[in-house]
């Protein structure tokens, strides 16, 4: 899924695709989450490749989008104050994680649970925008990613997760 307003993602930047997709999915639901997902994608993209013409073109366009968005969200403190933003993203990520965890513990396995664990794992990644993760967040990040992969594998193979 391409991000509206951005050129096609160059193959070299495939690693940031899911963060951009999560941002697009949250554009209507939670603009703060969407903004910080794109900021994370920007920073990660810059470490991967910002020299080749197609990557540079993409990253400059993403930067234009972020600057524009920050101007538009002038009254949103969570976007303009990163400490408030961090608390916002962390609360949201935890909410998604707890939903998936509760479903999992109740034995209700579905694609939705896989997606929630997966999204929570990515949102915990996004929290590295704000510095080193706490031990608890780091633990949840690893657990969410492992659970998403595990339940996905079970569903695919017709097995019941344990």
């Amino acid at each position: 899924m391409a991000t509206p307003g951005l050129p096609p993602l160059p193959p070299a930047l495939k690693a940031i695709q899911h963060y951009l997709k999560t941002a697009t999915e949250h554009e209507q639901r939670d603009q703060v989450v969407a903004y910080y997902c794109q900021l994370y994608a920007m920073q990660k993209g810059m470490t991967i490749d910002r020299k080749s013409p197609d990557c540079k073109h993409f990253l400059v366009s993403l930067m234009d989008l972020l600057e524009k968005k920050k101007q538009q969200l002038i009254d949103n403190e969570a976007v303009h104050n990163e400490m408030v933003g961090q608390a916002h993203v962390e609360n949201y990520a935890l909410k998604v994680f707890l939903f998936a965890d509760n479903e999992d513990r109740a034995g209700r396995f579905s694609k939705n649970v896989v997606k929630s664990f997966y999204t929570a794992g990515m949102l915990f990644d996004v929290l590295t925008n704000f510095g080193e993760l706490s031990d608890d967040v780091e633990k949840n990040r690893k657990y969410a990613k492992w659970k998403a992969a595990y339940i996905h594998r079970c569903l695919k193979n017709g097995e019941t997760p344990t």
Binding site: L39, M42, Q43, M46, R50, L59, M63, E67, K70
Partner: peptide, 29 residues
């Protein structure tokens, strides 16, 4: 050849700095 190479790297380096500068500015806005 080497002069062109040097010019290109200098240009690339300046452009990289611009992206980093914009990122730093964005996060301070």
């Amino acid at each position: 050849g080497s002069t062109i190479g040097t010019a290109s790297s200098t240009q690339a380096s300046t452009e990289q700095d611009e992206l980093s500068q914009r990122l730093a500015k964005l996060r301070q806005m």
